[in-house]
Design a binder for these strands. Sequence first.
DNA 1: TTGATTGTTACCGG
DNA 2: TCCGGTAACAATCA
Length: 258
Amino acid sequence: MPEGHTIHRAARDHKKALMGHRIIVSSPQGRFSDGAKILDMHVCSSIEAFGKHLFYKFTCDMYLHIHLGLFGRIRKTKAPVMAPLGQVRVRLVGGDCCVDISGPTICAVRNQDEFDRLILRIGPDLLRDDADPYYFFNRVKRSRARIGTLLMDQSVVAGIGNIYRTEILWRQNIHPCTVGKDLSGAQLKKLWDDAKVLLHVGMQNNRIITTSIDIKGKNAERLNIFNKTHCPLCSETIEKIEINGRSAFFCPQCQPIG
DNA sequence: TTGATTGTTACCGG
DNA sequence: TCCGGTAACAATCA
């Protein structure tokens, strides 16, 4: 479910609902009792997203670190608090808000030092104002890896997942197997700018939208070629390949190998 | 029951 | 040192 926009959206929403409140952190299924005990009843002082990582900071100077992985979900509900739905690992209750987190691959309590080291590993985040595009350009230009691999490497650029990878490369007419070194500065600048726009659109709408078709229609197509059979531009048959174990799609006509 | 899935890390071999 | 492949982990749905 989550690419970068999901996490940043959650951070924004949860800030309004949880910050400044005393928070009860619990593990309804008893699957994360260590974190729950440490953070019980402290005030939430900030919530921030870095790429796909989410950090809730508490006044006891500890962070709750969440990464949803492939299957994780965040559900926010209003009081009264209901029985948890599915395998809820952590529940945050404060103000009139209840946040349930299920299926995360990372769900841990961090101190300041651990937080600082984690942040260093994360590349420029397309959804953060402080993101440095030149770091991304340089990493790609020096690399012999395929751009399809590099876009998913969160130390190169943070926030892009499997669906955005396919869609962004199609929009820029770049074959996913093109080697990083072979891309021009102009191509990389367009790639960065487009990715940034798409992630912001995703955050606004709370869903991935990469088509320019009217997004208000309920049945409007929201993706161009991901999981599709034909290219919406040239009608060519879309090809499916695996890159680093994940499916990638491309149009052989619109995305010639560079 | 099986397979697929909007993710990441560790480890190994070339 | 870089890059690709594999396994492991997570939860849900068709």
